[in-house]
């Protein structure tokens, strides 16, 4: 297969970016999207055309959350429930022009080319996305009983890989799906309930502070989430927020 690629190139965080056009030829349909970019980079180096395109990637099996490209108007490209590394060229038409852009959000500034800085997510987690337990001195694992359906629901939310596709997809660059997944995961479990009220407030405050937009319930996040995290988590986050605010003592 042959493709024309329009790729965002930007030297560094401060430089002005632009789209460059490259062609790749003889790509196997079994090739993954990132492997296609590897092939492009090899040819950019070998033919001394340009510095290879920088893009984040690591595990290449859809779990680390490192990769993330905005491909033809969709985060992680034209397939549902996959990360960019799991997207395969068989999903494209031969001869197609493919636009590749970095995640765009104030809270995710571009570092270089297609690489963005997602440390904002870590900051949200640091604000309270954990159970404040230190090592040792914990009860036996089976002393905490958790109904299977609750554990399953918590797991559904905990599957979030923090890739940032929800922010990238959202027309408001809102991080609500990410935050709600973490809040839900912990709020559904007895271990997390203890700090639930404090957690939700701290995390939402941090999220607002970092310049993410507001959720307008458009659900592009849900449509693009590679781990199929559901909007019901956002509703749960809202509930947790209301309960926390109503029950808040000054």
């Amino acid at each position: 297969m042959n493709f024309t690629l329009k790729i965002w190139r930007q030297e560094n965080a401060k430089a002005k970016g632009r789209f460059e056009t490259y062609k790749v030829e003889n790509i196997s349909s079994d090739c993954s999207f990132l492997e296609m970019l590897d092939i492009l980079n090899e040819s950019l180096i070998s033919n001394k055309i340009a510095h290879p395109v920088c893009f984040d990637n690591d595990c290449r099996e859809g779990i680390c959350g490192m990769c993330g490209l905005y491909i033809n108007g969709r985060p992680h490209g034209n397939d549902d429930g996959v990360t960019t590394c799991q997207l395969h060229m068989r999903k494209f038409k031969d001869g197609e022009t493919i636009w590749i852009e970095p995640w765009r959000a104030k809270a995710f500034p571009v570092i270089r080319d297609l690489v963005v800085d997602r440390t904002a997510y870590d900051k949200i987690i640091q604000a309270g996305g954990y159970v404040s337990v230190s090592t040792g001195g914990v009860p036996d694992a089976n002393s905490i009983l958790i109904p299977k359906d609750k554990a399953d629901k918590a797991m559904d939310a905990a599957e979030c890989i923090g890739c940032g596709a929800c922010v990238a997809a959202c027309k408001n660059a809102s991080a609500m799906l990410f935050v709600s997944a973490k809040v839900s995961h912990l709020a559904l479990l007895p271990q997390g309930k203890v700090e639930a009220a404090n957690r939700v407030q701290k995390m939402v405050e941090k999220m607002d502070e970092l310049g993410f937009g507001n959720c307008t319930n458009t659900y592009a996040c849900e449509a693009e989430c590679p781990k199929l995290i559901k909007r019901s988590n956002i509703a749960r986050l809202n509930r947790e927020w209301i309960c926390a605010r109503v029950g808040k003592e000054k």
Partner: peptide, 12 residues
């Protein structure tokens, strides 16, 4: 929250 916009319209 999105000072630089995408060049391609959203297809989500």
């Amino acid at each position: 929250a999105r000072p630089v916009r995408y060049s391609q319209p959203s297809r989500s």
